[in-house]
Design a protein around this nucleic acid. Structure first.
Lengths: 339, 339
DNA sequence: ATGAAAGCGCTAACAG
DNA sequence: CTGTTAGCGCTTTCAT
């Protein structure tokens, strides 16, 4: 049978209230009894039942983490960061994998609320009306990663996706490229989809290149999907000299496809990615990309959330992290001659 | 304020015991009252507090998942499989990332027990004495993945690592290779380390190749570590014609290193991996490997564990899954001429 | 069939 | 300082 506070109280010859006081240091206790209780706890190897504590305190020590796809290295890295802080702060993480499915997200959100988790870290592509309703209604502390979310008062962290994509595109244009194609994610994804695409567009426009829908490939962050997009592109469109994939996984799909068509990267087509997942530097060729401080973002998000949970003051609710362009083998460094 | 069973009882004009009976269908209830209760529940949007239920039932609906490294695609895939079943069976998963650290594993195990999780899925490299003690003492249902564990009565699932490595090695020897190097994981890892290594050794021996420690590189599953091992190898040892990396991540590190030394894969050195993570088919060159049904193993492990938790009968506690050798670009298909 | 009451293990308010 | 008591929200005897 499980040891409870009653056994401890009996052995120490005190009331269970006193045991509780000793455990939590909540009220002063006679030093001698204090000692006795401590010894009893040790002898019985007593551990308080967190479920009972939770029932009293209305806290579970659980944090829900909702992500689209744990097999995507970007999210895995994020989760690793989250886990580190969660553990350090004596919480536990409930992992929810939504496979990019909006309904599953809502199911999970509701379930987490019913489970009385103390807070949620939420990553999604589309923030639907239902999502907003949920967050408006529920008092659950929430932190968004990879999403600005101004209309509701939740914490969020991200990088400046627009500017990063603008810079990456400019890197190519400055060196003389003109036919720069992009593989973009769905525009319903406000940041990784829409913002990055807008950055690309504006950079092109700055170089007086008229928008050309033929240069735009659509994908959904997955390798296969990017692979197929490029395959279709090569069949139907005129050649380009650059493919800017707006995630590293998509860049891998693109490079792999180009290679299968005997197109050399970077000599014939340069490719860039986005995120800087670990594989970006080990892929062959290694991939030029926009580095996000993924691990740090996971840690920071968790710290923010826990502050929120504890009702501690928060100086800044919406954090923009720095990014950095990392040049690797999938692009050249020298100017190219015009077409 | 939160709606409780009391509010429902009041609104329906019955006792809370009756409400409980309706919710759980635990005892017959007068149809008319039954209806009233149902309506009250709906109207108030009442959800029973799982913490209170847990306190009574001594169950939390939580399953602990302990893994070495979530950023390793192998484990990510496994977790994805686990998550799917966990969700389907109305449990939740607490994810514990141990970063291959034995102490962290034990900390987590103890913590999970104290948190009253209903069961644990456990993946580790070394099963230490302390681990065994823990499982012997605690009555916690546990399932091991990637580990046979005969001395204690826990469920486990794995593939035949020995035979798979034997077959992979033989694939090279049969085609005339003789200088076949291996990158192995620590031998303290009984299955992915020791067993695979033993399979390699025995295959070599079958072809009358005397054991040569110079052909053995040591690594720890990480890309970087394999990269460095190969780098050192190339500097110090005589050339080989095959490198058999006992995980895909290590194969990637190896290929990348060979490429950095201008050694062509597979023409100059053939490389094989192990696991068949998704990246194995998209890497460039794509990687010949041993496929494990990772996703299925995650699902099966979870089903097994939940049966164990519920005390349902289990026909087979130790499951061996089939593996399959997948030939890709990192190896050739034709015989090679002897050295 | 159903309400009252006890209790899961713990904490906190209340007397002393 | 400390023991007694009253819950936290739910389930489950136990009478009726």
């Amino acid at each position: 049978m499980k040891i409870t506070i009653n056994e401890v109280a009996k052995l120490a010859g005190v009331s269970k209230a006193t045991v509780s006081r000793v455990m939590n240091n909540s009220k002063p206790v006679n030093p001698e009894k204090y000692e006795r209780v401590l010894r009893a706890i040790e002898e019985l190897e007593f551990k308080p039942n967190p479920v009972a504590q939770g029932l009293v305190h209305k806290r579970t020590g659980l944090i829900g983490v909702v992500i689209p796809d744990i097999t995507n290295p970007f999210f895995a890295e994020l989760v690793k960061g989250i886990e580190e802080v969660v553990r350090e702060k004596n919480y536990n993480m409930i992992l929810c994998n939504t496979t990019h499915n909006g309904n599953k997200e809502l199911d999970y959100l509701n379930m987490l609320k019913e489970k009385y988790v103390d807070g949620v870290i939420f990553m999604t592509a589309k923030v639907s009306h239902e999502h907003k309703e949920f967050f408006r209604k529920s008092k659950l502390p929430v932190t968004f990663i990879n999403r600005k979310y101004e209309d509701i008062n939740v914490a969020s962290l991200d990088i400046d996706n627009y500017q990063a994509a603008y810079d990456m595109t400019t890197f190519f244009l400055k060196r003389g490229h003109r036919r720069v194609a992009i593989i973009r994610a769905p525009l319903t994804d406000k940041t990784s989809g829409y913002e990055r695409y807008r950055g690309y567009q504006d950079a092109m426009e700055f170089y007086d290149i008229k928008p050309d829908d033929a240069l735009v490939m659509r994908s959904n962050f997955k390798i296969e999907s990017a692979y197929n997009a490029v395959k279709k592109f090569l069949k139907e469109q005129k050649p380009v000299t650059v493919i800017f994939a707006t995630s590293d996984l998509m860049a891998i799909g693109a490079i792999r496809c180009l290679r299968d068509h005997n197109i050399h990267v970077p000599n014939q087509v340069e490719v860039a990615g986005f995120d800087d997942i670990p594989m970006a530097s080990y892929y062959s060729p290694s991939i030029t990309t926009v580095r996000q401080p993924i691990f740090e973002m996971g840690k920071k998000a968790t710290r923010l959330l826990i502050k929120e949970i504890k009702g501690e003051p928060i100086n800044s609710r919406n954090i923009i992290f720095p990014y950095q362009i990392i040049l690797r083998e999938s692009t050249l460094k020298t100017p190219v001659t015009g077409e």
